[in-house]
């Protein structure tokens, strides 16, 4: 599939005159859920007809499965995910003291796998890592996003906020150019959402599959004709820190449906 550069160029021209990005007032914050048709909302709400639930169920199975040289399962340490993982995804990314930088949920799962289970790492965007991420994040469904008030995260969150405002790519657009300044308006046939990461990993009809926030962020970067950061890059985690802070208090939807 090819993009539609004409639409983006047109938008870039419109935005050239636009004022500097302003934050969205809390009362105006909207999940992408609210922009969807009633049919797609129903698809998300009913867990027995939400195709994202297949990954959640796979993740549930993997959670119980002993693996690696250590022969332990996630459940071996963390027990019942319904209790131990409740609200966890709503607080990620978190600061990892050993690494000296923030780590996202998928990164933490992968780290657990190599260090505790002594197993092969799960590649970013692999079905297994998406499934475990979706299963863990599903335990926070309906809970408010609750970014940790950890001062060690602050410089990274600030860098994410800066990247969010920085025009990138041949189209010279920042995240904020679309998602703060022009949300609710149309780009091509679709409504521009506010870019809240409430439902990841989510099932995108366009992908016909479940995918991560990083996949979506990379799509956006490719869309504005920028070189995307690699999966797992620190910049993507910094951006996620900012997006989660921006969406603080909004309800988690994993696995969300989006067009």
């Amino acid at each position: 599939m090819r993009g539609r550069p004409w639409a983006l160029l047109l938008l870039a021209a419109v935005l050239a005159a636009a004022a500097a990005a302003a934050d969205i007032p809390e009362a105006d914050r909207r999940s992408g859920y609210e922009l969807m048709s009633p049919e797609l909302r129903a698809m998300q709400d009913d867990e027995l007809s939400n195709p994202g639930m297949f990954s959640v169920l796979d993740g549930e199975r993997l959670w119980q499965e002993p693996g690696g040289a250590a022969g332990t399962a996630c459940a071996g340490c963390h027990g019942d995910a319904e209790e131990s993982m409740r609200g966890v995804a709503a607080r990620y990314p978190a600061f990892d003291a050993a690494l000296g930088r923030p780590i996202d949920l998928a990164g933490r799962i992968s780290q657990c796998r190599t260090e505790r289970q002594e197993a092969e790492p799960l590649p970013r965007e692999s079905e297994a890592l998406l499934a475990l991420s979706a299963f863990v994040a599903h335990q926070s469904r309906g809970l408010p996003i609750d970014p940790p008030d950890d001062p060690r995260l602050q410089p990274f969150r600030a860098r994410g906020a800066e990247l969010y405002q920085t025009p990138i790519g041949q189209l010279d657009l920042a995240c904020a150019s679309c998602h703060d300044d022009n949300w609710g308006r149309r780009l091509g046939g679709s409504t521009i959402p506010q870019a809240h990461p409430t439902g990841y990993p989510l099932y995108r009809l366009e992908w016909q599959a479940l995918g991560s926030l990083q996949r979506r962020l990379r799509n956006c970067m490719i869309g504005v004709r920028a070189t995307p950061f690699d999966f797992g890059a620190p910049e993507l985690i910094e951006l996620e820190l900012h997006l989660m802070a921006r969406a603080a208090g909004m309800a988690m939807e994993t696995p969300a449906i989006r067009p």
């Binding site: 599939m1 090819r2 993009g3 046939g189 679709s190 366009e206 992908w207 799509n219 956006c220 869309g223």
Partner: peptide
């Protein structure tokens, strides 16, 4: 509807 931001 044809979306503008599709995956490349």
């Amino acid at each position: 509807t044809l979306a503008a931001c599709i995956e490349d």
